[in-house]
Amino acid sequence: MTTSSPSSSSTTKMSLKLLVDKKAERVLFAEASKDFIDFLFNLHRLPIGMVTKLLTKNNMVGSLGKVYESIENLSNTYLLHENKNKDILLKPKTPIPPGFLLLSNYDTNINEEEIEPPKLYMCSNNWCRYYYVTLVPNTQCSNCGHAMDNSVTYVGKNKMEVKGYYGGGGEGGFVKEAVTYMVMDDLMVQPMSSISCISLLNKFNIKDVSSVEEMDVEFGVHEGIELLKASLLCNNVLTSVFHSNIKIKKESNVILH
């Protein structure tokens, strides 16, 4: 696996081993490590606004792209808090470090001094005795109605706390490292075993084992965005992302024979 520091995460590449049905030109499953599984699980932490932004409004599934475009084009005259409301909607904050899509082993490289903890806000009314907090500044206090724009100091930020906040656990990420995982074409994840592999070949009704081939591919930022998009459109996600690789491999094999 090729990795990079968080600051250069756009060049990070993961290695995946695909088991491909050459005749059907489809991925049966992928053999993946912790990094790829953490990437998949992290997708569930993305706010919908961030998903729209990642896919760009023109490629967004359904009509969410139009909502994004409407927010962009809406005059500040109609906004309650001018540009602040646009930033909240178009640039939503996510509890994942920048470049998380392919940030391999970020738990060991993370610089806690560069990480900002979540900003919390309390009611600005000194007479309000309810200690409610919010992540969104200027939210109306449910007790007295004043704006909650009094910034609260976050105490803590030790290394394990930061890693747990961004990665979901003390050791970073979500799944254990000393395990190989099987990712199905529809992104179903399970631990890998020889028994599960044989069962899957039977499930896919693979009679001719010679039609099945292993293929090593690289998974970078581009593939990450394509996977996110495909996961919203279809069930054969891995086949959709790597179909061109499969086709090239198949054509090269034909030429060699």
Rank of each mutant, 00 (worst) to 15 (best):
S4D: 12
S8G: 10
S8N: 11
S10A: 11
S10P: 00
T11E: 00
T11A: 00
T12R: 08
S15I: 08
L16M: 10
K17N: 09
K17C: 02
K17P: 00
D21Q: 03
D21G: 04
E25T: 11
R26E: 06
V27Q: 02
F29E: 04
A30E: 03
A30R: 02
A32Q: 04
S33I: 02
I37N: 01
D38Y: 04
F41N: 09
F41V: 14
N42G: 15
N42E: 12
H44C: 06
I48R: 11
G49W: 07
G49H: 14
V51L: 10
T52M: 09
T52G: 05
L55S: 10
L55Y: 09
T56Y: 12
T56A: 13
N58D: 15
M60E: 01
V61Y: 10
S63W: 07
Y68S: 10
E69T: 11
N76K: 02
T77Q: 13
Y78G: 00
H81Y: 12
E82W: 10
N83L: 05
N83F: 04
K86Y: 10
D87P: 00
L89M: 13
K91N: 14
K91L: 11
K91H: 14
P92Q: 12
T94C: 14
P98L: 12
P98E: 12
G99F: 06
G99L: 08
F100D: 06
L102A: 09
L103M: 15
S104M: 00
I110D: 06
E114P: 00
E116P: 04
E116D: 12
P118Q: 10
C123T: 05
S124T: 10
N126Y: 06
W127L: 09
C128K: 02
R129P: 01
Y130M: 03
Y132R: 13
V133C: 08
T134W: 01
T134L: 01
T139V: 04
Q140L: 09
C141T: 04
S142C: 11
A147Q: 07
A147L: 10
M148W: 05
N150P: 00
S151R: 15
V152W: 10
V155T: 15
M160C: 03
M160G: 08
V162S: 00
K163R: 15
G164K: 07
G167C: 14
E171A: 08
G172Y: 07
G172I: 05
A178T: 11
D185R: 08
L187W: 08
M188S: 13
P191F: 05
S194G: 13
I195Y: 11
I198W: 03
S199Q: 15
S199Y: 06
L201W: 06
I206H: 03
K207C: 08
D208E: 14
V209R: 14
V212W: 07
V217P: 01
E218Q: 12
F219T: 05
G220H: 13
V221G: 01
G224F: 03
I225Y: 09
E226F: 03
L227A: 07
S231R: 06
S231A: 15
C234M: 07
C234F: 02
V237K: 00
L238M: 13
S240W: 05
S244C: 02
S244V: 04
I246Y: 02
K247D: 08
I248L: 07
K250H: 15
E251V: 04
E251P: 00
I255E: 08
H257T: 13
